[in-house]
Simulated scan of single mutants.
Amino acid sequence: MSAINLSAGVRSNLLSLQGTAGLLEQTQNRLATGKKVNGPLDDAAAFFTAQGLNSRANDLSSITQGMQNGMKTIDAASKGIDSISTTMETMIGQVRQALQDPGSEPPESAGITAPADDSTAFVVEAAVGGGAAFDVTIATGDLSATDQAANAQTVVDAINGDANFQSNNLTAQLDDAGTGFTIVNESGQEVVLTEGASSGGTIDAVGDLTDARQALMNSYNDLRTELNALSADSGYNGNNLLMGDALEVVFNELTGDDRTSFTVSAKQADGTAFGNVTADRLGGAEGDATTFASNVNLESRLEALQSGVSELRSLSSQLGTAQTIVENRESFTKEMVNTLQAGADGLTLADMNEEAANNLALQTKQQLGQSALGLAIQNDQSVLQLLR
């Protein structure tokens, strides 16, 4: 097939129009996509650099979702601690009210007869709650040979002045006749008299539980059950920091030794695991007649509950610190994502104002080129007219 010969003027204008059309297509593509680099052919270095930046930004964006889940898990545990603390304070109130109730008379031993003379030393020995025995011995020189009432008073004074009897909340009191005595047990534990005039005798741990204390004990146990339920229900998305779970919050997109993360768990002051946050763990053992009928046992329970409240405050502070760490890291990661995306956009996005101006200029140039091409063709036609 023979080639079509174009005049120099037509060919020059045609090449100019083709170049303008190519530039116009490129400009319109940039306006349509908003990017000046749409593929490696546009600018390989910029394209692959932006691709790497966007890839890391996407990875970090995915990680922020894990951080948000972590913060919600911590928040759920914190709210659980707040409610548990309120419950603990109410339990403490129940114990305080029980202490204010007079209660029943503390249990006491059967009557013990004082020595009638000074022929032998007099011994009273006791063991509390199965512990080691301790005693008071009245030597013969401290006893009267004829006055039993005086001897009874001597024994009572000796028992009430003994450090072991005092520390175990055991006291002696004279009987109505004044010639004997009983031992009153306010220890909250069973007492066995192992030697002396009442050897083999026992004293009950506590007296009868009054109706008022019974009602307070029932309320206390109801609160205790609710405390355990609150702890069990303080989880989020399968993780419960109050029931011994540990949560790892990942902070970057790397793996192995390069990965950074933060593990959140309930810990004691010494850094060891706190364990399950339950009533028993916080000093709120189940209330029973032995506890609520004894002021000594109630005081011990009150002290344990107050210690538990202190532990809850420490645990709440730990979770608050963990929440701050994760929140700060999430904020940092979001800023990093914005920085990476801005860097990628700077490499690939087109300046829309510039491209719009280019588009208008190229359209004008195209129109001028078409006019010039028309004039060149008219020149060729004029030559043809001369030949005719």
Rank of each mutant, 00 (worst) to 15 (best):
N5W: 07
N5K: 12
L6V: 10
S7C: 07
S7I: 08
S7L: 07
S7Q: 08
S7A: 07
A8F: 01
A8H: 00
V10R: 05
V10H: 02
S12A: 14
S12G: 11
N13S: 14
N13F: 03
L14Y: 04
L15R: 10
L15C: 10
S16I: 08
S16H: 04
S16N: 09
L17D: 03
L17F: 15
L17E: 09
Q18L: 15
Q18G: 13
G19P: 00
T20G: 07
A21K: 14
G22A: 11
G22N: 14
G22Y: 09
E25Y: 14
E25V: 14
E25N: 13
E25I: 14
Q26W: 13
T27C: 09
T27M: 09
T27F: 08
N29P: 11
R30Y: 08
R30E: 10
R30S: 04
R30H: 13
L31D: 02
L31Q: 06
L31W: 06
A32I: 05
A32Q: 14
G34V: 08
G34R: 01
G34L: 00
G34P: 02
K35R: 12
K35F: 04
V37G: 00
G39M: 07
G39T: 06
G39R: 02
G39H: 02
G39W: 04
P40E: 05
L41K: 11
L41Q: 12
D42A: 08
A45F: 15
A45H: 08
A46T: 06
A46W: 12
A46H: 00
F47T: 00
F47P: 01
F47I: 06
F47W: 06
F47M: 05
F48D: 02
T49Q: 04
A50N: 05
Q51W: 06
Q51V: 04
Q51L: 09
L53F: 02
L53V: 06
L53H: 07
L53K: 07
N54W: 04
S55C: 01
R56F: 03
R56P: 01
R56H: 01
N58V: 01
N58L: 11
D59H: 02
D59G: 00
L60E: 00
L60N: 02
L60I: 07
S61C: 06
S61D: 09
S62G: 12
I63N: 04
T64E: 10
Q65W: 07
Q65V: 15
G66K: 05
G66F: 09
